[in-house]
Amino acid sequence: MNRVNEQEVNSRGGLRWFWLALTGVALGLAILGAILPGLPTTVFVLIAAWSASKCSPRLRNWLENHSLFGERLRNWEQGGVIDRKSKITASIGMCLAAVIVVYVIGHPLLLMLILGTIGVGALVVWSRPEQLPESSRNSRC
């Protein structure tokens, strides 16, 4: 039996619909994340791009060339880069979510768990580089 690449296998039958559904859900959550504080956007865009690459090169290409998502997606894939503007936007969202959680959640253990998760998210965001290393920038097309 000839080896068939993963793209061909996933583009046929039920798996293609699974990946398309996952892409749609991830994009929907990314859009909600852009509106609602505390719900991340970037992680859902990354999931959408990954799942789109399994089922629809056209959709993946659309995400890579999207005016809002494209550059951030390419930067992440080339070196885990999160630009300063995205870091500040994420931090504002996390702070707003923390304030809401403090006022809404009454259970101390749950409150600490949520605030700890927000804190870990902030550490991850701010630990990422803000631009590609010089060697990576020179090798880009």
Rank of each mutant, 00 (worst) to 15 (best):
V45G: 00
L20D: 08
F18K: 12
M112Q: 15
G121S: 12
P37K: 14
L22E: 09
G79E: 10
E6D: 09
S51A: 14
L110F: 01
S56T: 05
G38V: 00
I35G: 06
L22F: 00
V4C: 11
L96Q: 11
L39S: 00
S86H: 13
L29S: 07
W17V: 08
P57G: 12
L29Y: 04
S139L: 13
R72C: 04
S136M: 12
G106I: 06
G70S: 14
A122G: 06
K85N: 09
I47T: 07
N65Q: 13
L115G: 02
R140E: 13
W50P: 00
H66N: 15
A48R: 03
I88E: 05
M112T: 06
L96A: 07
L20K: 14
C95R: 09
L36D: 12
A26V: 01
I35H: 15
V81F: 08
I100S: 15
L20Y: 06
L68R: 15
A49Y: 02
K85C: 07
V99N: 15
L27K: 11
T42K: 13
W19I: 06
F69I: 03
V25L: 14
S127M: 12
L111K: 15
S135A: 14
W17S: 10
L96I: 11
I92P: 01
H66I: 05
C95Q: 10
T41P: 02
W19M: 09
V43H: 04
I118P: 00
L111V: 02
S127G: 07
I118N: 01
S56Y: 10
L68C: 01
N65Y: 09
D83E: 14
G80Y: 11
L111D: 08
L29I: 02
G70T: 09
S53P: 01
G28V: 01
S136I: 04
H66P: 03
I47H: 10
V125A: 06
A26C: 03
P133Q: 11
R3S: 12
L132M: 11
R60I: 04
R60W: 08
L68H: 13
L115Y: 04
L27V: 04
P40C: 02
Q7D: 03
W19N: 10
L63V: 02
W17D: 07
E64A: 08
I114F: 03
G24Y: 08
P108D: 11
N5K: 06
G80M: 11
